[in-house]
Amino acid sequence: MGLIDEPLRMNPWEPVQITTNTQTPRMPRNVENHSANILLTQVSKLVDWGRSQSLWPALFGLACCAIEMMAASASRFDIARFGAEVFRASPRQADLMIVAGRVSVKMAPVVRQIYDQMPDPKWVISMGACASCGGVFNNYAIVQGVDKIIPVDIFVPGCPPTPEMLLYGFNQLQEKIRQGLPNPPDPMRPTA
């Protein structure tokens, strides 16, 4: 602890654990969709089912997790069984971002831009410890959880998660889409 004053406001990516695990402050998320849409309910269910079965991920392998992500799309685990084999290099053709690996502070604006370039509806899977909360990289260089910059739908623990863990998370996401749950609030655009 130096003599100089500590900064007044917390760094949003403050590396030290400042709250107990039980108190980790997060934004409220996944409020049930209570829209009373009687006529189109069944149609939207069909649409949601369709969307859940054709998620096209954007290529976003950042680190070692990407190897497992690739393995998930290879023949043994074969993510194509769920209609998600088409990894797109262009965000315009993708509706799922699998953030696979630690996001450095330098990379954060890029992640955000790619996310912004993806057309709605879009979803995000935070894959692995680093993307989800910084993991072992508890330092100034790594974003302590990618949900600080983009809304994350599914958190997949693991370091790295095995392809099955990713597929389990992916199935959870499909389930979520089918249930019509809304996306969590965008951390960079707080709603009033």
Binding site: A129, G135, I154, C159, G169, Q172
Partner: peptide, 30 residues
């Protein structure tokens, strides 16, 4: 989410209280 499943806790435990098992279906929305 923080855990990297390295198993150091299992090695450090003096009473064998904590082990890492086979369960892996952990992903969650929250």
């Amino acid at each position: 989410l923080r855990c990297i499943f390295c198993g150091y806790c299992q090695q450090a435990c003096p009473t064998g209280a904590i082990t890492l098992e086979k369960e892996y279906e952990l992903a969650s929305l929250r």
